[in-house]
Amino acid sequence: MSAREPLIVQREVKPLDFLAAGETASEFKELLKSLGIPTDICRRASIVTYEAEMNTVIHGGGGVMSLRLEDDAIIIVAEDQGPGIADLEKAMQEGYSTAPDFVREMGFGAGMGLPNIKKYSDKLEIDTRVGEGTTLRAYIFIKGQREE
């Protein structure tokens, strides 16, 4: 438990803005680095942010990314009011993708985004409703595991 207020940073993500993609991830990474978070944790957090950001850009119709730094965990949240994920179980499978062709030609949409997020986070929560949107919460525990 901490008496300190957690640090929270929010960034808007625009729909289909591929040129800006990656900026949030880089910014979060630099911020975490500047706060003395270990390099490996910064790298994992930035990969999770980038993949979640790309999902918001490609599928979510834009949304909001946020970074929350608590004493024992980094929490990355991606929120959108997009179409939702119809079959979450399938979406978690590597290789399954509903991305359009023009996105695939850019090297996205390989069905690896959510599996990568799962791989690089310690805990993943996805709350999705068809027609309403998706909220993804990825936790990276700073000391390898959650402290009591």
């Binding site: 591929f18 040129l19 993609a21 990656g22 790298r43 990969i47 980038y50 993949e51 850019m106 090297g107 996205f108 390989a110 690896m112 985004g113 599996p115 990568n116 791989k119 690089y120």
Partner: peptide, 23 residues
Amino acid sequence: LLSFVMGNAPAGCLWVTIQNHLN
């Protein structure tokens, strides 16, 4: 595939690709 490289490349390696855009 950007996600493949993102998920699997060792940090500090070089990268050969035919993708030539900003990402």
